[in-house]
Nucleic acid binder design. Structure first.
Lengths: 221, 221
DNA sequence: ACCTGAACACCGTTCAAGT
DNA sequence: ACCTGAACACCGTTCAAGT
């Protein structure tokens, strides 16, 4: 309760936690330096003594959520290890859906965050016997898929809106062209099927095929 | 030169084209209703007589760029047709990198835009002999990968910044943990290798395997 | 019907001033 | 060293008024 006599009123960590709370509860657009200061009971400008600006603050948010990411399991075959990595990555997105857009769109933040946790992904891929070049290329495919999937998850939170837009678009199309689209639509609306593991399986199978076709390949990607 | 006596000073199409031009040249953040009006030589509020607000305007931009998307080829086997679809989609992102973030993050816009062009993707997947459920799931994987890849392309435009952040992060890591990361780093910096086709090949191979393992499967996704 | 300008409720950030 | 308040240069949008 009693605040320490000497310590600063504000710490960088308090700022980051409060900002993340704001984003998680009210969305990325609801985070403004002024609202954040208000929530911290402080003058807007006080924040600038601990963080250089809003952009740095957002970067710090991304770092913060990746710091709390679960360490992927290190046992099992390489398929399982890759799945474990992807699942841990996805969990971060699930816990902070309002931050996903920033996670996937800020290259610096992503690079820094990814560096902390992607050793396990590279190690898992190396365990498959791929060449270093293939490891890098494969990691790229996996990261891109996971990013795209996390984005689609975020959109799913606004699925009602999406469904309406989709329905309106469907109604404008000639009926003979949209059988498959209606299928997607009803699928997306009704099913609780999770495309995440399906996608991982497809990619892992594809990497298997690449390995058998081309064992110890080094430069013919 | 002479403007028609009766027509309105402003049309929705002029607004969309000018806004896209602003985004393409100066970035998404540089698009403000006020700057747009200025560029059109008009009062900021005049725009609101043709477009209800900024959000609708951004949605219209996405629709506009997808309207100009190349129609994917309809010949060839289903692998080629999927590649053709993905390439056409990617081309849109290449031509409007500053809009990619909006494209992948606005579910309504994406749904509407995708409906216009994804018949070809579904048709291609159906030609592989998959069940309708598998077609939908496979399309999801492909869309997610393409979205993730397009985002990484956008980031690549700011690769210099990314590389610096990455280097800084590398220098902080213990040297024994980062061999693979350094590999990625130098690869990303030096190579002109395109992960796009590699990713498509991996996914298509994975879908092949799924088809042979499980011909005419219907519900065991 | 279309366009305008003033006004409102916001932003991020700089700067000089306080303790 | 840390915090504050006024100020600057912006936003998107409402509203009443013009033609």
């Amino acid at each position: 309760m009693a605040r320490p006599r000497n310590g600063p009123l504000l710490t960088r960590d308090q700022i980051v936690v409060a900002a993340l709370d704001l984003v998680d509860h009210y969305g990325l657009d609801a985070l403004s330096m002024r609202k954040l200061a208000n929530r911290l009971g402080v003058d807007p400008m006080s924040i600038y003594h601990h963080v250089p600006g809003k952009d740095t603050l957002l970067r710090a948010l991304v770092e913060h959520v990746f710091d709390s990411m679960a360490q992927p399991a290190l046992d099992g075959d390489w398929h399982q290890r890759v799945r474990s990595w992807a699942t841990a990555y996805r969990a971060v997105a699930d816990e902070h859906p309002n931050l996903v857009l920033r996670i996937v769109s800020d290259p610096a933040a992503t690079a820094v965050a990814a560096a902390r946790i992607s050793d396990t992904l590279y190690a898992a891929l190396e365990a498959s016997g791929m060449s270093p070049n293939a490891v890098v290329a494969s990691a790229g495919v996996l990261v891109d898929f996971v990013h795209g999937y996390c984005l689609s998850l975020t959109s799913a939170a606004r699925q009602q809106e999406l469904r309406q837009a989709f329905q309106a678009e469907l109604d404008k199309q000639p009926p003979n062209k949209i059988k498959a689209l209606r299928c997607l639509h009803s699928q997306a609306a009704a099913s609780d099927y999770d495309g995440f593991h399906f996608g991982l399986d497809v990619i892992l199978d594809g990497l298997d095929k690449l390995n058998t076709k081309n064992p110890h390949h080094t430069k013919d990607l």
